[in-house]
């Protein structure tokens, strides 16, 4: 039996590695990176993947070898051991050093992504609510949070190759603002206004999704990130502004009055029938 189980457990690291190799060679890997900062995030991901991968393989192989060698059928007597202090301390030190290494190694990238907020006014407010993303752009006066703000649900437009500062809020519950192509993921917390920044390097239409289970409609809480040239971005804002200020006045009034009478409503029909 010991040999059988040894092989079963050995299949876990073998299949695990195979899945990664197959996924990478078939193209099921990261979505296209269009962020100036995304390369560093991907690099960190790979470093940690190699580290944890190595530890994972080592543990699994030790497990399989132990099962093979110490088969219960062959050596039925267990031996009690208090462990080996030196080995344990050594292992703890190695793990500790690895964690310290990761901490130091990623400091610069963390600061870039979460601490060194670019010194510019917010480009857009993104408001998460069950179950949509509503964007709010500064109006013509360039200030966010006043009467001329422009609202647009679903689509987040940003100009390419510029620093973007998103002001992230939530209207109801926890959401998570996730832009896979920009390697951006940030919780939106009710009552907090959280700054998020990035710089998109390529034009195109990309996914904006919610990455925090926020209710039954979480799966459909999606939007689009539209990265476009400065000119297109400004044209979009102009369009939005014209639409939002629409007063509907037309020089040529539709030929009104008395061309036809309105039909009675159902309530009126019921009422008349009852009165009959």
């Amino acid at each position: 039996m010991g040999k059988f189980w040894s092989l079963v457990f050995l299949s876990v690291p073998v299949l695990g590695v195979a899945v990664f190799v197959a996924a990478a060679s078939w193209g099921y890997w990261f979505p296209q990176n269009v962020s100036a900062h995304g390369g560093q995030i991907d690099h960190l991901f790979m470093v940690i993947l190699w580290l944890t991968g190595a530890v994972f393989l080592a543990t699994e192989i030790v497990l399989a070898v132990s099962l093979w060698r110490f088969d219960g059928a062959k050596s039925p007597r267990a031996r009690f051991s208090r462990g080996n202090m030196r080995i344990e301390l050594g292992l703890a030190a190695v793990v500790g050093l690895l964690l310290v290494f990761i901490t130091v190694y990623q400091l610069e990238d963390w600061a870039e992504a979460k601490i060194r907020q670019p010194d510019l006014p917010p480009t857009v407010e993104v408001n998460g609510r069950q179950f949509e993303w509503v964007m709010r752009y500064p109006g013509p006066n360039g200030e966010l949070g006043d009467a001329d703000d422009l609202f647009s649900p679903g689509d987040l437009h940003v100009p390419v190759d510029e620093d973007i500062l998103v002001s992230l809020v939530s209207e109801d519950v926890l959401h998570s603002f996730y832009l896979p192509n920009l390697r951006i993921k940030q919780d939106a917390v009710p009552g907090m206004r959280i700054p998020v920044w990035f710089r998109a390097t390529e034009t195109g239409v990309f996914d904006l999704v919610c990455a925090e289970l926020c209710g039954w409609g979480h799966y459909k809480m999606a939007g689009r990130l539209i990265v476009e040239s400065r000119a297109d971005y400004e044209a979009f804002l102009t369009r939005l502004e014209a639409e939002q200020n629409e007063d509907g006045f037309e020089e040529q009034q539709p030929t009104a009055a008395n061309t036809s009478q309105r039909h009675p409503s159902v309530a009126e029909v019921v009422y008349r029938r009852a009165a009959r």
């Binding site: 509907g248 539709p254 309105r262």
Partner: peptide
């Protein structure tokens, strides 16, 4: 009567358009 109201009340002239 049901369809009549749907059709007559959604004609272009039934839409509110500001006069100024």
């Amino acid at each position: 009567p049901v369809v009549g109201l749907w059709q007559s009340s959604t004609l272009p002239q039934f839409v509110v358009v500001p006069e100024e």
